[in-house]
Structure formats: structure tokens, C-alpha cells
Computed example of a mutant assay.
Amino acid sequence: MKILPFVALTATLFSSGAAFATEQTVTLNVANATCELCGPIVKGSLSKVSGVLDVQISEADGAAIAKVRFEDSRTNVPALITATTNAGYPSRIVQ
């Protein structure tokens, strides 16, 4: 009967999806971020997305560049774009 706890633990790990999570990084060009308060607003909106691990903001010609590190099992790029758009700053992936 000692095998039963091992089987239960293994089943829990594989069913949670956490065992397959990978870290991803995406760079977003965030439009309309032209003032000194825009960067912190964008960073805050992205940081609130579940699964976001880190956000770095830099400024570039009337826009902000957001480099976002996230767990792909908990969020995705469309959710990040939605977060900035809902905060008033539409974004797109930098290729």
C-alpha cells in the first residue's frame, strides 16, 4: 500500500499543469505612452495579470516598450495585450 501515496502525488502533479509551465518573454510596443506616468500605469496593468513574473518598461519615440516575462501555463500574449489596452494603452508584439 506504500505505492498509493506516490501514485496520488504523481497524478496531482500531472493534472495541475504546473509541471509543464515554461517561462516566456515577449516585447510589446505600447502606444500612447508619452508621459512620465504612462510607464508606471502600463507596468501596473501588466503586473496584475496572473502569471506575469516581471515587467520592464523603457521609452521610445512616443511609445513605451514593455518587456514581459510570464508563465505560459497561467497567461498568454493576448491577455497581456488586453491588459494594456484596457488601461488605455493599446499594444502589439515587437517582431
Score class of each variant (00 low, 15 high):
Gly39Thr: 12
Gln24Ile: 01
Gly51Val: 10
Cys38Asp: 11
Val42Cys: 00
Val26Phe: 01
Glu36Asp: 13
Lys48Arg: 15
Lys48Gly: 12
Cys35Pro: 02
Leu13Phe: 11
Val42Ala: 03
Ala19Met: 12
Glu36Cys: 02
Leu28Thr: 06
Thr27Asn: 05
Ala31Thr: 02
Gly44Thr: 05
Thr34Trp: 10
Glu23Trp: 02
Ser15His: 08
Ser15Cys: 14
Ser15Glu: 08
Val52Glu: 08
Leu46Asn: 12
Ser45Asn: 07
Phe14Pro: 03
Ser16Ala: 07
Ala18Asn: 07
Val30Pro: 01
Glu23Lys: 14
Leu37Cys: 03
Val30Gln: 06
Cys38Ile: 08
Ala33Asp: 10
Gly39Ser: 14
Gly17Met: 11
Glu36Gly: 13
Thr25Ile: 15
Thr34Asp: 08
Leu13Gly: 03
Leu28Ile: 09
Cys35His: 10
Val49Asp: 06
Ala21Arg: 05
Ser16Arg: 05
Thr34Val: 15
Gly39Met: 08
Ser50Leu: 07
Leu13Trp: 10
Gly51Tyr: 07
Val49Gly: 10
Ser47Val: 00
Val49Tyr: 11
Glu23Ser: 13
Val49Ala: 09
Ser47Gly: 09
Thr34Arg: 15
Ser45Leu: 04
Ser47Cys: 00
Glu23Gln: 11
Gly44Leu: 03
Gly51Asp: 02
Lys43Ile: 00
Val42Leu: 04
Ala33Phe: 01
